[in-house]
Amino acid sequence: MSTLTEENYKSASVRRKRLRQLWIAFLLFPAVTILATFVFLPMISAIWYSVYEWDGLVRGDFVGLANFAEVLFNPQSNKFLFNAFFNNVKVFVTLMIVQNGLALALALLLAREPKGYRFYQVVFFLPVILSTVIIGFQWKLFLNPIFGLVNTFLRMVELDSWALPWLGLPETALGSMLIVNAWHWVGFPTLVFLAAIHRIPKDLIEAARLDGASEWNIARDIIWPLMAPAVTIIVVLTFIGSFNWFEIPYIMGGLEGSPAYSTDMLGLLFYRTAFGSVSAGNSDFGTGSALAVLIFIFIFTFSTIATRYLTSREVELS
């Protein structure tokens, strides 16, 4: 009798286990399907495309790594690659300093809950929910050298010499776009940083204050190390975002990274190469896909390394 119940029990537990597995599979199904359709499939097809010669949209012969060699070593193509790549590097460095630095400063300020901080929190976050396309167009109008708000204002306060054609000069175009991007996105890292700061027990800050730490000491010695997980997230997201930067430069500088490729980005270069444009020439899926694969490998490798390194300096808040 006892063995029978045990067996019954066993089979019931096996059944339960199976049901559980089925349930897990069921819950995973939509996510896996979406991931497979919109992430893995395009990725694999890009790798597939990149080893063929393409005549427009018609697949030609298998060419091995020739497309990669073309992108990387042909001086006529790799000068665009390097130019775009260094522009992306500039974007990353600038956004890290300007956008995330500002976000950190804002988060530290807001964390002290000054009067009306909830209002400011909303104000800083508001641009994040606006459409990038709208922001791009809006700021393109603001920065118009003749009719734009920015120069009209500068002329009004008699800073005529400052009223530059912001988006027209190779020296200022990228910087202007980065400021727009920072304006657009600063609320996001601010919010993440703020949440991280709020997670730090108040006692720790007070203990430091009693230990004689200045506000700067507290920010540097206590808050900064303890918000490491948030910093990891933001650094990695900024990295990925910087090297995939597309919408703002596309809308404000066009597909050719105008003026004179000073706002050219890997994303724009890929788009031009793969799909062509009215003036840039015809679409070439082969080199375009090779470029996409290279961009992917670069971003994947570096964000993985960065995540590993940054995670190692995180501390659990007990």
Binding site: D203, E206, A207, A208, L210, D211, P225, L226
Partner: peptide, 29 residues
Amino acid sequence: PPAKRGLAMVFQSYALYPHMTVFENMSYA
């Protein structure tokens, strides 16, 4: 300000700095 009063406080939660060693915790001030 708190630090200038010559007081030291032990918190209910201990409020130890989790990213610092015992030595660093004790020597922070």
